[in-house]
Nucleic acid binder design. Structure first.
Lengths: 232, 232, 232, 232
DNA sequence: TGCTAAGCGAGACGGTACGTCCCGTCTTAAT
DNA sequence: ATTAAGACGGGACGTACCGTCTCGCTTAGCA
């Protein structure tokens, strides 16, 4: 049906794999996943929707969990971390990478993946590498910039902070309880920053100044919520 | 096999339930759960080990998830929150309630429960009520005391703080990665407290004073890790 | 609920049985039997429709088969065999007793009873006594009259003939194939009689004479089919 | 375990059926059937004895009834009808085909099949085709020969006679009452033949002549019973 | 151009467990 | 003692998927 050959498939003999099938299967997987969740996903149905057969799927993925992981990973994309010079803004922005990445995943699917990973170290590594690390790394880089800039104390425990932030996202993502909202996320960041910032009020001031600057020309609609500290 | 009747079961008609069966099933459930995890638990096997039959189990619990939830809840017990006057100590102590409650649960089991809850609101309420709320409430009370005492700022967002703490526990409990250790937990508490305390150094001082008091008579082996702030 | 007591129930102590229940259960049994057949009849449903409970049914009948047998037997009634002097007519008439008794029974129910009886001698005796023997006896008496009258040969094997007739009825009753019709039945009787009659043509002649006699006053529309021998 | 392939299975796609399984299941079915009867036969046990699983059985037969039917049919074999020129002998011989076919079937099994067939037309057709028609056809052919030969009256109702004979066999086969014996069967045939033969005494004479002929050389052990008419 | 090796669909394989139904019995409290 | 109610232990049901296998056919690259 297709002619994807470039005369080369690594020198392997025999008929090469049909790349269209991979795509169709991943798409079908996401479709079923969104409709019926993880427990309701049977490879039988995925094969049916993708117009292929079960053995063909098993030839490419080791089972349900790896397939689902691949399907979800394929949909995700993690943009580069920002570096505007404003620690508060950058962190909030960067944190949204975290959030956006999980808001597309059904809670039950995420939880089931966690469960499968707990029993399969190989799968776990893959899970970490494709779903966890990328966004963690992005936020991590933002933290590093803030520390380098002298906004956060030098002895700040980077990993602990990432854990606290990541935990919050996942905790909420795992419950049917609506995912973390943007404003909740920002307030959490504020609480955490107050614990690790060298001079928290200064950070707030800087952020507000920048905001005004941006807002002045076009008029601020305030749709981001402000970074201000209501208690100050 | 036993009689157990007290001539009273609330006036309900029909043969009363045999409480021994409930106990045997819950015990068998925990046994299988610890051996094979959630995915490896079949009601068939539970029934077998409990010396009863599948229908009898279905008569008492609506399915696998409610059964597992009940079994885990039965094993849990949440002690009363402490109130020693030392915010740092109390919080650490109280937080251990959180931790202890989850360290007995296999990560895959917890994750699977999350997954099932995400699709079943009724189950979710039960899950929240039996596995989440009790420990959250315990820590919450400790926070309230600290606020009342004036150790934490009056406008502290109690729920947010609980979320951050709880999230951390669950996040770790869900990964095969070893659960949160006591020292990690303490350091996380410190980070958070620094963000919400009225006078953080004073809290640390108070805690250390108490510790010395206790330690003096027997000699302190330092096995709890100290509450000291390395940055001070 | 009822007060059927006459202050006497044979001196038995305790609460006397409620006769209404027997009737209600038998009626419910017939109802379910007619709707869903033997395999579809559960004592649970019968109890429900009769407004009583399973144990109460078991107290009165030993199980499904005896209950069904009792229900069917209660509906049956076998009238006295005729003795008009006309062997052909009597036999046909008597044979209808056979037929009528079975036309009210669903084939699958009859067959299932046969099956249960094959494994339970006690039930079998009851089955024979209530469903088979009465009609067999009625036809048997007619045969005896015919032999006594000299219409059938003296050495006629009464039992064999009854077997052949009975077999035919049951054979048909057991198949979904419509039960034996009246005209088929009559022709079968003719075939058999020709094998055992002393003077078959004379029997036919007698029968036809009687028929005319009866028919003359009101005009015979021949709706019974005639007993004539097409071959004569 | 075995290969058995002839590279051809009719061009059907997919993995071909393993014929050994069919055989093992049918054998196991007969085994259980003979031991515990129809009601005592569970597909679970059959699967166990055949070394396979329930779903595999359901893949090949639609349920218990079709399976049992297939198992019984596989054991049956209907030999060709005889044509010796002696109507009485042929009929008796042919009738034994009828008998032999049913003497191997437990009454309760036969009855249960009847019951199931009464509710399922498709099954009924299969039942008729495999268990009823073959032997009926064999006897039917013998009757045709007798009519063609002029031994039976031309207007004889072939179907009615077959019904009467078949009914007798089944009637007896359905009761635990011992199956029809050979001598009973012969006497029934005689009764029936007298009703349809052109010249019954001649038939008897012919039969007896043949018997002497056969008996003379080897000496007659009389194991067939004689065809004589005790009443003559 | 033909060989070889893999991919592919189809579908049956042996198997585990599901959730349900109904059995026949037992244990209550109430009549 | 019998009633209605309802749980008991138990056996079997028919179904859904699992992950694997065996086919016959197709497709490509290498010879």
């Amino acid at each position: 049906m297709s002619k994807a050959h470039g005369s080369r498939n690594g020198g392997a003999p025999g008929r090469p794999r049909d790349a269209h099938i991979d795509a169709a299967v991943l798409a079908a997987t996401l479709e079923v996943l969104d409709e019926k969740g993880y427990a309701g996903l049977s490879l039988e149905e995925v094969a049916g929707r993708a117009g292929t057969s079960r053995p063909t799927i098993y030839r490419r993925w080791a089972g349900r969990a790896p397939l689902v992981l691949a399907a979800i990973a394929a949909r995700l994309d993690v943009p580069a971390p920002p570096d505007s010079g404003c620690t508060l803004c950058d962190l909030a922005e960067s944190f949204n990478v975290f959030l956006a990445a999980y808001r597309t995943i059904r809670p039950d699917v995420l939880a089931s993946l966690y469960s499968d990973c707990a029993r399969d170290p190989e799968l776990r590594d893959c899970f970490l590498g494709t779903l966890i690390e990328p966004s963690r790394r992005a936020v991590g880089r933002t933290l590093d910039q803030a520390i380098a800039r002298g906004d956060l104390r030098a002895e700040t425990d980077r990993e602990q902070l990432l854990d606290l932030l990541g935990a919050l996202v996942h905790y909420r993502a795992l419950f049917g309880r609506e995912h973390l909202t943007d404003s909740e996320a920002e307030r959490a960041i504020q609480t955490l920053l107050r614990g690790v910032a060298v001079d928290y009020p200064a950070l707030v001031a800087h952020s507000q100044a920048l905001e005004l600057e941006h807002a002045a020309p076009h008029g601020d609609h305030g749709e981001h919520g402000d970074h201000g500290d209501r208690t100050a």
